[in-house]
């Protein structure tokens, strides 16, 4: 029997407390999480449950108050310095003085990759997200969905093993969102990257993931881990299958039971506000 591969993300007893004007809020408490390489893991929960904070702790953009974080077998800070992960936010955060191509090249420039190699990878990524004809356009000339695809291309440009996504499709309309879900799965299958995906949407979490991590606020905790064993590749048929509805219900129930029978109320913003890049 073969050994399970080492987790690509390992968090042990992680805690995060924010001090806002004298009052301390426990954004995250007692977080234990192991993510296997190649998994697609969603973090779901209401606003204020700490999912964005958790993501940023993995990214070493926020330091935990306590606990251990390992990414790719190293301390999170080392992993960041080694550029082991790419990141996508809810807004595309593209630079409007650069063309789409130049935006996708940005991480490669920062990492000192030679120009020929940069061009090659950039073109490969643009083809992957189906934006090849739009390379010379500027971000403001593209729709929201296309900009987000460009942001994904940028995040994958340097072929990281891990992709961290913070509600990347939250700002898109329902149809575009479903289309982007399909595209993301296609990209995931092509690249084999591990994806940690923060979302508000129960259907989206179930459709995309191999595992759903359910979180609740006050303090931010993981209340359950739900395996999503729906067959792949997933498509329209999946969205209409019984298994899918059962799992959506299961996730909804998990969110409910953690709060004694009601969907938990969103916590006040201050407890989930990332402290910024400080």
């Amino acid at each position: 029997m073969h050994r399970a591969p080492d987790p690509i993300v390992r968090m042990e007893s992680v805690e995060k407390r924010f001090n806002a004007g004298g009052a301390t809020t426990a954004a995250l408490s007692d977080i234990d999480l192991r993510i296997r390489p190649g998994e697609f893991v969603s973090l779901i929960g209401p606003s204020g449950c700490g999912k964005s904070t958790l993501l940023r702790i993995i990214a070493d953009l926020i330091e935990p108050t306590a606990g251990k974080v390992e990414v790719n077998g190293k301390a999170a800070a080392r992993a960041r310095h080694d550029r082991d992960y790419g990141m996508v936010f809810q807004a595309p955060v593209l630079f409007d003085w650069r063309t789409i191509e130049a935006n996708v090249e940005l991480p490669l420039e920062v990492m000192g990759v030679a120009r020929g190699e940069r061009r090659r990878r950039r073109d490969e990524m643009l083809a992957l997200v189906e934006l090849s004809e739009f390379g010379a356009y500027y971000p403001w000339q593209l729709s929201g969905g296309m900009q987000q695809r460009a942001a994904i291309a940028r995040a994958l440009a340097f072929e990281p093993k891990l992709l961290l996504m913070d509600e990347p499709f939250g700002a898109l309309d329902e149809m575009t969102r479903e289309r982007m879900n399909d595209e993301l799965l296609r990209i995931w299958e092509r690249t084999g990257t591990t994806i940690v995906f923060v979302t508000h949407s129960i259907p989206e979490a179930v459709f995309l993931s191999s595992r759903v991590v359910v979180m609740t606020p006050r303090p931010g905790r993981i209340t359950s881990l739900i395996e999503v064993d729906l067959p792949r590749p997933r498509n329209e048929a999946t969205r209409e299958s019984e298994g899918y509805f059962e799992l959506v219900t299961a996730v909804r129930e998990a969110l409910r039971t953690a709060h004694g029978g009601t969907i938990p109320e969103a916590a006040p913003l201050v407890s989930d506000e990332p402290a910024g890049i400080g």
């Binding site: 940023r56 990214a59 953009l61 960041r80 310095h81 080694d82 550029r83 992960y85 790419g86 990141m87 936010f89 955060v93 630079f95 940005l106 991480p107 920062v110 990492m111 890049i277």
Partner: peptide, 9 residues
């Protein structure tokens, strides 16, 4: 954007 640059170290 600054977080992004930080993620690129």
């Amino acid at each position: 954007a600054l977080e992004l640059m930080r993620s690129y170290a």
